[in-house]
Design a binder for these strands. Sequence first.
DNA 1: GTTGAAATTAGTACGAA
DNA 2: TTCGTACTAATTTCAAC
Lengths: 212, 212
Amino acid sequence: MSEISRNGSGGGGQAGRIGIGLELDDVHMKILEVLRENGRISVAALAERVGISRANAYTRFEALRADGAIKRFTAEIDHVRAGLGITALIFVTVRQQMWKQFRAELARMPEVEYCAITTGQHDAMIQVRVADVAAVHTMVTDRLANIPAVKATETVFILDEVLKRPYVLPSDRDPAHRPARRTAQETQGDVPLGKMRFVGAAEGRNALRKDD
Amino acid sequence: MSEISRNGSGGGGQAGRIGIGLELDDVHMKILEVLRENGRISVAALAERVGISRANAYTRFEALRADGAIKRFTAEIDHVRAGLGITALIFVTVRQQMWKQFRAELARMPEVEYCAITTGQHDAMIQVRVADVAAVHTMVTDRLANIPAVKATETVFILDEVLKRPYVLPSDRDPAHRPARRTAQETQGDVPLGKMRFVGAAEGRNALRKDD
DNA sequence: GTTGAAATTAGTACGAA
DNA sequence: TTCGTACTAATTTCAAC
């Protein structure tokens, strides 16, 4: 399950956030760094690794949880061992004003691990994990295609997952032992722009939020 | 960091797996189900929820960890609160026989949360989380475009993350209180196939494993 | 694979800096 | 706010069944 709030991440960013929103300092970031690698570490050990007292660690840990900065703790598993060795991405074009239906159907699909609404040629990207390639075909032709909200799909297979971090943090690049990055303006004309392409939202699709 | 072994997931599935590979039974699955929602649960509480003894839970928990079925425990955070409210997908076309270089460069990019090699029009998909849209532009034009291995990129923004599960399990669909799925054969001709499109690997790209 | 008891560790509450 | 300590509760370990 676990539906994500529309404000949770992506898109607008600062738009419509609920809650006070606890300002995260360096110590908070360091806590998140440790928790990223070891979500089961004891708060006592966490305190030691971050360099604060146990009491402080408990306070901050609880604050991060209560504030929603930490949503939950979970495990990371080997999908192959779990019997779901095939991963595919399905790019979906959704019929206008049928987003609500599309979202509802998604929740009923247990093989879907991730779904995001995107700009560009397609409207959404779905990541699925299944046992074999036949299951992908079944999923797409049987389940997805039968949803009226789905106008078209395009499926690609994932051959290899090169990199997967639980999450990234601003502090990951702060340590500044890598070449300083320049602003977008500074980089103009620097590289062959023909290489790159930014794809905006498809024509006509403006309000694709839940309430359409 | 956390480079994923080439056998970890995706692709071939059963190809070249190392290790004995502990057969996972229903109890293991149930453990993974609980751990998915609460990665910090005590083994004692886990035992109770799964309906086994403490000692058994400890044995199985340790076995899952040792076997690699559970890779690690981690937290799930609110990216907006962490200051990285913009998420983008960058589809990359990689120059042949430069995969090793591409992989090496990836590890040096802290804003990359996920990278997978795919079939289809592009060769890889990268997911990045950054503070603002300008950072995406910088990332693509400054950092990615300067990698010789990168032939072209296409960027889309994620407007909303509709669904995000830590992982899916085969048991998620076993409970069988949903319409039985049919085989790929049975579904043939069932739906307007024009809706769907399966995209195979781009021409010429055959061996895209690390060792090219 | 289970239960039960000892040893250890975790979580809480409080006063002081 | 943060720290240090003492107190209470829970967890892990280890033994025997």
